[in-house]
Write a protein that binds this DNA or RNA. Structure first.
Lengths: 205, 205
DNA sequence: TTATAAATTGAATGAATGTTCAATTAATTT
DNA sequence: AAATTAATTGAACATTCATTCAATTTATAA
């Protein structure tokens, strides 16, 4: 009875436009009114779905972190081979295509919010911790399969994460494309070195 | 003739209040009006000194980056001993007192601006690059003095910076004090390990 | 066809924003 | 004391903001 609810689909549409505008102009310069204008709908419709701006931002953070999570996803082709799976993840993390899928500016913009917004802080902390656990799992699997020679798995995983976060922090300021790619390759190499693995071209994404 | 100018002193006062409010409530929640209210002055006075909000923010970025730079400052006592100087810098970077002097939230908040504000981007890039050069200089001096055994100085310096940036990225989300300090110590240890140095208590700050 | 429920609009709100400009106050020099 | 220059105020500005509420349109089920 009554009209079919479009709620979830509509919310996602709104968030996507929010994402694209914030990506272009920054989080603080993206208002509800501007999102509505871009979508050619009424601002009150956005408030109808997200009761407050805070909820809207929260939805954006969810959206961004979901995208971020994808980088750690292992394709079905490599799911059964622990070594290939690990190599695929490392490859994904240190690849150029990541940038086309994911906007670092927004990731850091939302990250900056964690210092004053407990909700966002929790989301980030839980995501990063779950990714750590995941990487630990992969490494342990590799060790169990005898394809990896590491002693302290947790430390190794931590080293990888430090490398990732530190690498992109500086990389985001590198505008020269050649230097960017060169550094990226070097960091990937270093990640493999931490894992006592060698670069391989055999692994597809 | 006429009144003595308080311009520079007053501008610094304003920025300091801006800093303290933004530290507490976040950059985007700190308006000119709020700064003026806190100082019990008229908002137009702030505009008098900083023509636009953009200029005001730019001043804040300068202020923050100047503070950041201090972490890399070597005390006079260690200035002549290259090994002690390097150890002091590493000690400063991975110390708890840094947090009392410097607000990570604002540092990341301004960092997030680099993605849409070319001016801020240049400031950050130039600072980080100059710090790199400085660290490279210290390491090279140590090598010249025969107290350090490293081959590729630039790579070593880059590894240190990646460690710093990556470490604090995650540390900023760690609220448990004990875990925070434990990790911090571990990262410091790792920095020394990259330099092939050992932890020393002999170096004062 | 009618009832129902959700989607959407439109107008209005008050508060806060950055900024302008003229007027006034306060300090310093001649 | 008078002239000068900067500090500071106060009132006003147009804009934008998030949010509210009632009214209307649109789709679906009975």
């Amino acid at each position: 009875m009554g009209r079919k609810s479009l709620k979830e689909a509509r919310k996602k549409e709104i968030i996507k436009v929010f994402y694209s505008l914030a990506k272009k102009n920054g989080l603080e310069n993206t208002s509800i009114a501007k999102i509505a204008a871009k979508m050619e709908i009424n601002p009150s419709l956005i408030i109808h779905y997200f009761q407050t701006r805070e909820d809207l931002v929260s939805g954006l953070v969810d959206y961004i972190l979901d995208k971020y999570k994808l980088i750690y996803k292992v394709s079905a082709a490599n799911a059964t081979d622990s070594r290939k799976a690990l190599l695929e993840i490392i490859g994904n993390i240190f690849s150029k295509k990541w940038n086309t899928l994911f906007d670092d500016g927004l990731f850091y913009g939302c990250y900056a919010m964690t210092f004053h917004d407990d909700k966002v802080r929790d989301l980030y902390k839980k995501l990063l911790d779950s990714l750590r656990e995941m990487l630990i799992g992969h490494i342990e699997q590799c060790r169990a399969d005898g394809v990896l020679d590491v002693t302290d798995v947790e430390t190794v995983a931590d080293n990888i994460f430090v490398l990732i976060d530190g690498a992109y922090f500086y990389l985001s300021l590198v505008s020269d494309k050649a230097e960017y790619e060169q550094r990226l390759a070097k960091y990937r190499q270093q990640a493999l070195s931490i894992l006592h693995l060698q670069e391989l071209s055999e692994v597809a994404g």
